[in-house]
Structures are given as C-alpha cells and as structure tokens.
Simulated scan of single mutants.
Amino acid sequence: MTALKIPTHQLSRFQSLIALFILCLVLSILSDRFLTTANAWNVMRQVSVNICLSVGMTLVILTAGIDLSVGSILALCGAVTASLLKNGLAFESLNLFVGFAPLGAVMVGLALGVGLGWFNGWTITRFSVPPFVATLAMLTIARGLTMLWTGGFPINGLGEQFAFLGTGWFLGIPMPVWITAVIVAWAVVLTNKTRFGRYVYAIGGNERAARLSGIAISKVKMSVYALAGGLAAVGGILVTSRLDSAQPNAGISYELDAIAAVVIGGTSLSGGKGSILGAVLGGVIIGVLNNGLVLLNVSPFWQQVVKGLVILLAVMIDKANTRK
C-alpha cells in the first residue's frame, strides 16, 4: 500500500491558505470572540486598508522594486483631504476662498498620492536611484509635510457624507470592503488581461530582456509607482473617513504590513512572480494575526516582535522557493 504523495510545488501554491486556516483554527480555540460576525466585519474593515496598499506594493515588487513611502503618503493624502474638506483653501492675496465638497477633496487627495508615487518612479528611472533609497527619502519627506500641513494636530469633524466611505454599509457589506473589492478586481484584470500587466511581469523577470524587446521600462515603472501612490491615497482616505479624523502619525509601519502581505501571498522579492489575489490573501493573514493578538491581550511590544518574525519567516520561505 503506497502513501499518497503531494508534489511540493503544488503544496506551495496553497501554503498561504493552509497558514490562514491554521491561524483561524488556533485563534478560535484561544478566544471565543474571534468567530463572531461583529469581529469578522471588524477584521474586514481593518484589512481593507492594508489590501489597498498591498495591491500597489505587489505591482512595485513585481518589477523588482520596493516602496517604503506608502505609509507616509497615506498620512499626507488623508490630512490634505481632511483639511480641504473642513477648511477649504484661502488665497488672501486674491481675496479668494475655495471650498470643497467631499468628492472634490477626495479627488485632490487621490491626485496627490498619484503625483507623489510618480515622483518616486521618476527619481528611480531618471537618476538611477535605488528604489529603497528613493522611497525611503519620500517616506521622510511625506511624513514631514504631513506634520507641517497639520501642525502636529489632528483634523476632526469631517461630516457624515465623508464618514460614509469608512463607516457606511451598502447591501449589508461595509463600504471599505466594497471599495477594496473593486480595486482588487481592477488590479486582477490589469495584471492578467492587459499588455501593461505583461510588461510588469517581464520587467521583473528580466529587465534587460524586456528592454531589448522594446518595452518602455521607464514609463512602466513610473506608472507602477504612481499607481502605488494612488492606492496609498485610497487607504489614507478610508482611514481618515473611518476615524472621522486625520491623524498626523497615521500610517506608521503600514509599509511593513503591506510588504509582509505581498511576500506571504507568494510574490517574490526578486520580481516577476506573484499575483494580486495572493497579496489579498496575505493581507487577510496579517489582519487576522493583528486582530487575534489584540483579542488575546498581547502586549503591543510583543505584537511588533511577532509581526517581525512573521515577515522574516515569509522572506526566508521566498528565498528558499527562489533557490529551488
């Protein structure tokens, strides 16, 4: 009688699902509050922001890049959106005041995120700055601009219409989940069904071969970083809306959660390999882990230790799979 053998490469395709199942099983045993409807929706709302960041991070990492600035861009775009919505823009020299409706403020926040992301891509492609260095600089710049814009104080009282984006429900499902689902569906089509998606994978797989094939490397990379910045702005708007407040220190360490989600979801840090749905699954794992640690009353300091170990383990698995 022969034992059933499952090929290693097939098992590796489901390792994220297996990890999520085991994590949920353990947490349901340790906490009777984990498997409740209220907690499930709470997790989904929290996960929505990280998935927005993770989708953009996946596109960047597929080109063998990295973006450390998404957390700071999230904070700056959220603060600018909140400020325009509440205070508008005053041009004293022209004796002019411009007020903003929720849609207008949101559009400005999104445009700002796209612009900052595009600037990341421009510095990387135009001056051959390593992505790690360029986005680390943007992390500091955007965080400083957030403090300058807000004066270090939160911006509160943004109105019910704006709050609906982060706290409202539609057809029995929270609005952040709807927004994230639309983004994920768009990103799946972009990466799997378009020429741009094929270019992204080609650049990450072998940039020199992609260049010799006639692919405009610089344009694709700038577009990828612009999309990552725009999705970080979406995350910032959702966070600001849910809290009804723009916090100057919002988004700190969010880039680490996004990178962890992408790697856990099977995207290679070397580029050219991975998927949007894998990043979504990785984001859910990170969200469930964060939620479980809170429910178990684990110290915030130990939470950082656990998350760091998870990131390290995910990178080690990625490198092992790459060698194979």
Score class of each variant (00 low, 15 high):
Ala3Gly: 07
Thr8Cys: 00
Ser12Arg: 13
Leu17Arg: 02
Ile18Asn: 05
Ser28Thr: 15
Ile29Ala: 13
Asp32Lys: 14
Leu35Glu: 03
Asn42Arg: 06
Gln46Val: 11
Val60Asp: 10
Ala64Ser: 15
Leu68Trp: 09
Ser69Gly: 11
Val70Ser: 00
Ala79Leu: 07
Leu85Cys: 12
Lys86Trp: 02
Asn87Ile: 04
Glu92Ile: 11
Asn95Lys: 09
Leu96Arg: 09
Val98Lys: 15
Ala101Asp: 12
Pro102Cys: 02
Val108Met: 03
Leu110Arg: 09
Val114Ser: 05
Phe119Tyr: 09
Gly121Leu: 05
Ile124Asn: 07
Thr125Glu: 15
Arg126Ser: 14
Ala134Lys: 00
Ala134Phe: 03
Thr135Asp: 05
Met138Asn: 13
Leu139Asn: 14
Ala142Asn: 00
Leu148Lys: 05
Trp149Ala: 03
Gly152Thr: 01
Pro154Phe: 01
Asn156Thr: 14
Ala163His: 12
Ala163Met: 11
Thr167Val: 15
Trp169Ile: 01
Phe170Ser: 14
Ile173Glu: 01
Val177Tyr: 12
Ile183Gln: 02
Trp186Phe: 15
Ala187Gln: 09
Val188Leu: 12
Thr191Leu: 15
Lys193Ala: 11
Gly197Phe: 07
Arg198Ile: 13
Ala202Asn: 12
Ile203Gly: 13
Ile203Lys: 14
Gly205Phe: 02
Glu207Ala: 15
Ser213Ala: 12
Ile215Phe: 06
Ala216Gly: 00
Ile217Leu: 15
Ser218Gln: 13
Val220Gln: 04
Tyr225Leu: 08
Tyr225Pro: 08
Leu227His: 10
Leu227Asn: 09
Gly236Asp: 04
Ile237Ser: 01
Ile237Leu: 03
Val239Gln: 09
Arg242Cys: 01
Leu243Trp: 03
Ser245Pro: 02
Ala250Lys: 11
Glu255Arg: 07
Asp257Arg: 03
Ala260Tyr: 15
Ala261Glu: 03
Val262Arg: 00
Val262Thr: 06
Gly266Ile: 03
Thr267Gln: 06
Ser268Lys: 06
Leu277Lys: 04
Leu281Phe: 13
Leu293Met: 15
Val294His: 11
Leu295Met: 14
Val298Pro: 11
Phe301Val: 15
Trp302Gly: 13
Gln304Thr: 08
Lys307Ala: 09
Leu309Asn: 07
Leu313Met: 14
Ala314Arg: 04
